[in-house]
Design a protein around this nucleic acid. Structure first.
Lengths: 183, 183
DNA sequence: GTCTATAACGAGATAGAC
DNA sequence: GTCTATCTCGTTATAGAC
């Protein structure tokens, strides 16, 4: 694996666990096994690293969801829930959620990257929900747009609260109810 | 207003807007109009300030909710939603949600304070939902416990995402759907 | 209860050699 | 592409005078 990729993966974990304001270049350098100035060679500033990482994160999400658009609505929804669920056992939260809480401390060039991350999910979910409804596979008690926002908000919030509690109980309670209501 | 109260209010705003790792004693000192060492006289360490502040925050929430336990289930639910909604216009998120994202960087003495904050809300909401169901005032499509977790998670997540987007659209979409489904 | 002065440390970032 | 050395600044916290 090349150096840029190594830096990406360690920085991403640090952000998902501790936040942008909770880690430093020194932390990455220590784990990667190079000096701090070497990191600046690959990413001139911390803001640059965050921006490139958020772009990569969104791209990976897009690929994951696009490759599952042709599944049944129930399976697609399940795949989406699992995307969030896998973070708990690693003591991570979503990078988009983490950066959102820190948004007022971040360089403004990050803001549109955050909007893009959430807008994409909103559109993907809305389409899946509409498909599921017309297929008779999902039951909607509100508009697809409202349900999509609610699902995203619930997953983000449940992940953050569950991770802080140190177990997955809260996440499971929230999402099981949500899923059984829809199916 | 006495000095401790001044410090509390400014520190609370800074945390809700920027996070524990996004502000310093210098920021408070500047706004209060005293020197940094004077702050240490009132709160010996930053961790001490955070802990006292979180206790106060939970106490205020408890008083707010207890005083509304005798309202109708719909009105109580509305009061709870408004508690979260008022943060958006001030560019704040919930202090409990903010500290939860930063939990791995905080002194462990903060952890039980966070658990208490969320456990209390869970119990209060569950009771309200059960009452509303037996009164025929609320419709539940899942257990009261699951619905309570889902509501808390959705409010936290929607607040974080909406605040980052810079408008209340996402929050309103999420919560309007949730409320109309229940009533 | 507030101040000045300062300690001790870690942050992001740069210069310049190899 | 990596290093050592260094800069500048901000951080939490303490000592001790008023």
């Amino acid at each position: 694996m090349d150096m840029k990729e190594k830096i990406f993966e360690i920085a991403q974990r640090l952000i998902q666990q501790r936040g942008v304001n909770g880690f430093s270049y020194a932390d990455i350098a220590k784990e990667v096994g190079v000096s701090k100035p070497s990191l600046h060679h690959h990413f001139a500033t911390k803001t640059d690293l965050i921006a490139r990482l958020m772009e990569r994160y969104t791209e990976q999400l897009t690929e994951y969801l696009e490759s599952r658009t042709n599944l049944s609505a129930q399976e697609a929804l399940n795949a989406y829930f699992n995307l969030y669920r896998q973070n708990i056992e690693n003591e991570r939260v979503c990078m988009g959620g983490m950066l959102s809480t820190e948004v007022l401390t971040l360089d403004p060039c990050i803001h549109p990257l955050l909007s893009r991350f959430f807008n994409y999910q909103q559109e993907w979910l809305t389409a899946i929900l509409k498909k599921g409804q017309s297929d008779g596979e999902l039951k909607l008690t509100k508009t697809a747009e409202q349900q999509a926002c609610l699902i995203i908000a619930a997953l983000q919030g449940a992940l953050i609260i569950s991770r802080a509690a140190g177990n997955s109980t809260f996440f499971n309670q929230s999402i099981t109810g949500l899923y059984t209501e829809l199916t």
